[in-house]
């Protein structure tokens, strides 16, 4: 990276490479943040394999699968919204961004029903039912709530960010030539998606 001509103009003009680099570094810290939890998951799964196996059976695979489909599709729609704007189709881009937000909302609604069902069955931190179970069982649900909860928080943040992007697109702050903000938001949304791709098998499919 000793590209002098790049760095020379960087001070005076907008530099999309700079913005992208900052975004990638930020996503990297997010991955490490979740990495800490995947590390804990790996250790506890190793220590309590049978318990994790049994506990995962009570997960609702249907909701998990639907949510996976929703998030994957939403990653597609946000990517298409960028492509649409690059092709100067502002309205289409706005619609696609809006659809992404709605998908995020659907994901959260499903999550709400899923959590409610688990809580109804007494599977929540500190509940008498859960405390009476083996420690592997407790840890599975502890990790489940923390990891999917933190992921859900990221979904909410991503939705808010995309709503801001819609506003920027309407006000022409984001245009086909100044698209780096929308790209960054898209990257963030992909990150949210990728983390879910790992959470889904680890909690739903290990039975």
């Amino acid at each position: 990276m000793s590209t002098q001509e790049h760095t020379a103009v960087a001070h005076l003009h907008r530099d999309d490479v700079r913005s992208r680099m900052g975004m990638w570094l930020f996503l990297f810290t997010e991955l490490i943040l979740f990495g800490g939890m995947f590390f804990l998951y790996a250790v506890y799964r190793f220590l309590h394999q049978a318990d994790f196996h049994v506990a995962a059976k009570s997960m609702n695979i249907l909701i998990g699968t639907v949510n996976t489909a929703i998030l994957l599709t939403s990653s597609l729609t946000i990517a298409l919204s960028i492509a649409a704007l690059q092709n100067k189709k502002k309205i289409l881009s706005l619609i696609l961004q809006g659809i992404t937000v709605i998908f995020g909302l659907l994901f959260l609604v499903n999550k709400y029903f899923e959590w409610s069902a688990e809580i109804h069955h007494g599977n929540y931190p500190g509940s008498p039912e859960l405390i009476s179970q083996s420690s592997g069982h407790i840890l599975f649900f502890g990790l489940y709530y923390v990891m999917t909860g933190l992921h859900g928080l990221h979904v909410i943040i991503g939705m808010v960010v995309i709503m801001f992007m819609m506003r920027f697109t309407i006000k022409d702050v984001i245009t086909p030539d100044h698209i780096v903000k929308l790209e960054a938001a898209g990257l963030y949304w992909h990150l949210v998606d990728i983390i879910w791709i790992f959470l889904f098998p680890l909690f739903y499919l290990i039975t």
Partner: peptide, 19 residues
Amino acid sequence: LVIIERVFGVGIFDPALGG
């Protein structure tokens, strides 16, 4: 996680719950 442990008692670090 320590904060979550204090608020919700999820057990990830708490030896009393297997952590």
